[in-house]
Amino acid sequence: MRPRFFLAEAVRSIRSNMALALAATVTVLIAIFVLGAFIPSFLYVQSAVDRQKEKIDVSVYISDSAEVDQVNALQAQISGLEEQGVVREFTYVSKDDALAAMRERLDDPTILEELPSNPFPASFEVKLTDPENADEVIVAVEEQPALDPDEGIGFAGDTADRLLSVAQFIQWSGLALILILTVAAVLLIGNTIRLSIFARRREVEVMKLVGATNWFIRWPFVIEGIICGLVGALLSVGLLLAVKLAVVDRLVDDASSQLTEEQTTSIGFVTLAVILLAAGAALGALGSGLTLRRFLRV
């Protein structure tokens, strides 16, 4: 009987305070919408950064005059690093391969025809398990005699560092933003519900005088908060779905060559919707439950 009674009380209170319930719902709607738009964007950027990080690799150039033994020694060295888990994989690129690759990258490959000989050194292209491991690889192969004295080791250090710091910045600022948004949402909802309770504090006072326990008074308010939170979250999920279908999906289709190629992953919409609904309900329940405490001290 009790749950039904409390639910009925919550519905009654929403009906008799329609304007405030609406205000609370819209607040949740906005907060959840921003959260719902931000979470997938954040995850998308994160995943894109991760993809870029994977691409940072080290080129170990081999001197044209290197002996086969020396090249083998260098290869063994890198193999050792691979076994240690520092290097994910590495491939040998011969002088001809390097020339062919360059030819492909140039708009006008005819320039290469004018070269007297192939100037591109052979190399080991080393992919790292983690970009932070670059130094370890560089130190390990630095002293190898097979190393090309002019080219040495090719590593986009600056680019990598910058990418890493950007990635970290995105990570931290993203988390901070989510935190701020959540706190703002709780405060907004709390404030709206405080208004609603303030409007009814006389009623709460009467309930206490009749001998209602705090939870007897609190439950309907908490349920009311959950209802407002769920409805707000549901509306914002609908809105997000509309935005996704109308804007994001079309954008992905248009730019499929660039975006899908990256194989960036974000969060599934259903998962997102479930998270947002739960967040909405929790926001509503917390907002009203916490706010009510002050008014129960009659």
Binding site: V210, G211, T213, N214, F216
Partner: peptide, 9 residues
């Protein structure tokens, strides 16, 4: 609350 239920006001 139980005291108040036992007292009519």
């Amino acid at each position: 609350p139980y005291l108040r239920r036992a007292i009519g006001c």
